[in-house]
């Protein structure tokens, strides 16, 4: 299986060998992170999710991110959960906007301060 590493802008082309759903070898990576990515990507792909949500009391929306990557298949659900969040200014960068999104154990945090 051929995949492109998305860890950094180099975008290494990785060749991954799978046997019975298990990764047996990774080649083409130029750093350790590439191998880790390939092993994850072929079994349970994960992505960081970033988005903007409206903030009561502020004309500017708030930018947010998942603190760490979440399963790719949960991105839609994550966006739905985010659209239900009601938050009011002031918000500080780094504060938790939504804890444990979709039961992933990952928090969604603000990436900027609004009205503070």
């Amino acid at each position: 299986m051929e995949i492109t590493c998305i860890n950094c802008p180099v975008g290494c082309r990785l060749s991954v060998t799978l046997e019975n759903g298990q990764v047996t070898s990774v080649t083409g990576n130029t750093c350790k992170r590439g191998e880790i990515y390939a092993r994850q990507e072929c079994v349970d792909p994960q992505r960081m999710v970033t988005a903007v949500i409206p903030v009561a009391g502020s004309a500017m929306p708030l930018s947010v991110k998942t603190r760490t990557p979440i399963p790719k298949k949960l991105i839609d659900e994550c966006m739905k959960a985010l659209s239900a969040v009601e938050i009011a200014a002031p918000v500080k960068a780094g504060s938790v906007v939504l804890a444990n999104v979709c039961g992933t154990g990952v928090d969604i945090i603000a990436t900027k301060s609004v009205g503070a």
């Binding site: 995949i3 492109t4 860890n7 802008p9 975008g11």
Partner: peptide, 11 residues
Amino acid sequence: LNRNIVQCLND
């Protein structure tokens, strides 16, 4: 960048 083709279009 290739990473953006993968994570912004292909995904």
